[in-house]
Simulated assay, not measured.
Amino acid sequence: MDSLQLTRCSINTATLGHREPIDVSIDRIAKAGFGGLAPWRHEVEAADVSKIAKQIRALDLKVTGYCRSTYFPASTREQRLANVQSNVRALNDAAELGAKCFVMVVGGLPEGSRDLSAARMQVQDGIAALLQEARNLAVPLAIEPLHPMYAGERSVVNTIDQAQAIARELDPHNDGFLGFAVDVYHCWWDPQLEGALTSIGNENRILAYHVSDWLAPTTDLLLDRGMMGDGVIDLKRFRQSVENAGYAGMVEVEIFSRDNWWNLPPDLVLQTCAERLQSVC
């Protein structure tokens, strides 16, 4: 397996801790030699979307994904409709940015609910309501399965197999606008992983590939992701599996690290990402 070239690598801006305005982060990422980035909505929405889009194009960067969806489940029909409309607005921004996909972290149980099946149906209904707009704007939707520890509050879609079942139900003919973001942090543990990757690869639904590492022990379930090579995930094997499944897109670094990497100079973080992508991924 060949070593990764930085031009084939992307930086999710969360990796830099959201400490600087988005235009500063974009310049840093380009200067460090990466080929792409994945910005977050709150950063873009705090700026001028059209100016950010022009800056990205001028630097010849690819937008590997736009993060992330408003959660779909809610206690009332009105709030569920409002959540869909929030996602429509974000899809329009994703289109202006030229994003390869709109990353969907779908949401957990509504407040006070214990009905997991109902929450999952709300997710499916929400994605269905968004799918035609995605086609209209030519921005594919990428369901990102999250580790089961997040089922209560962040995502009731926890395996690739679950996500695939939703995609097959809503998009049986697979016109290219409903697929998946595969994140090693969330999927590395799955005993069905190899078969699941092969299956979604055969359907050409892998839209994004995210890397970080799982620290053992971890001190925070959200904000203690590891730099690649510092944890227990076999990242080379994982990339080989993703590429064997047909994925030829960019490799995106997404690290949430409140007590470690977010406290270090951004340029050092980017330099370390570059080194680790080329040595352990």
Rank of each mutant, 00 (worst) to 15 (best):
A248C: 12
V232G: 08
L221R: 13
A216F: 12
Y247T: 06
V253F: 06
A245M: 04
Y247R: 06
I233M: 10
V242P: 02
V253Y: 04
D213C: 02
F238E: 14
R239D: 15
V232K: 09
D220E: 02
T218C: 10
F238H: 09
D234Q: 08
E243M: 06
W214Q: 14
V232M: 11
A245N: 03
M250T: 07
V242G: 06
T219N: 14
F238A: 11
Y247E: 10
N244L: 13
L222C: 07
V232P: 05
L222R: 11
D224H: 07
R225N: 02
R237S: 12
V253R: 01
V251D: 00
N244A: 15
T218K: 08
E252N: 10
D234V: 07
G249L: 04
G226P: 03
G229V: 04
G226Q: 09
G246R: 07
N244P: 00
Q240Y: 12
L235H: 13
G229W: 07
E252F: 00
M250K: 04
W214N: 09
K236Q: 15
L221K: 12
Q240T: 12
G229T: 07
S212Y: 01
M228F: 02
A248L: 10
I233G: 05
S241V: 02
D224G: 00
V251C: 05
A248P: 01
R237L: 13
M227V: 10
V211G: 00
K236M: 13
M228R: 02
Y247K: 04
T219Y: 13
F238R: 03
Y247G: 05
R225V: 01
L215N: 07
L235Q: 14
G226N: 08
A216G: 04
T218F: 08
L223K: 13
T218Y: 10
M250C: 05
L221M: 14
A248E: 14
R225C: 02
V251E: 06
W214C: 09
F238Y: 11
G226S: 09
K236T: 12
A245S: 10
M227T: 09
E252R: 00
I233S: 05
Y247D: 09
L215M: 10
L235G: 03
A216L: 15
G231D: 08
W214A: 15
D220W: 02
A248D: 14
L223V: 07
M227A: 10
D230A: 14
G246K: 03
S212Q: 08
D213Q: 05
T219L: 13
S241G: 07
D230W: 04
G226K: 12
S241D: 15
N244K: 15
D213V: 02
E252G: 00
P217Q: 04
A248M: 11
L222Q: 12
R237C: 08
L223F: 14
H210E: 14
T219D: 12
L222Y: 11
S212P: 00
K236C: 11
A216T: 15
D213F: 06
D234P: 01
R225A: 05
L215E: 04
L222A: 10
M227P: 02
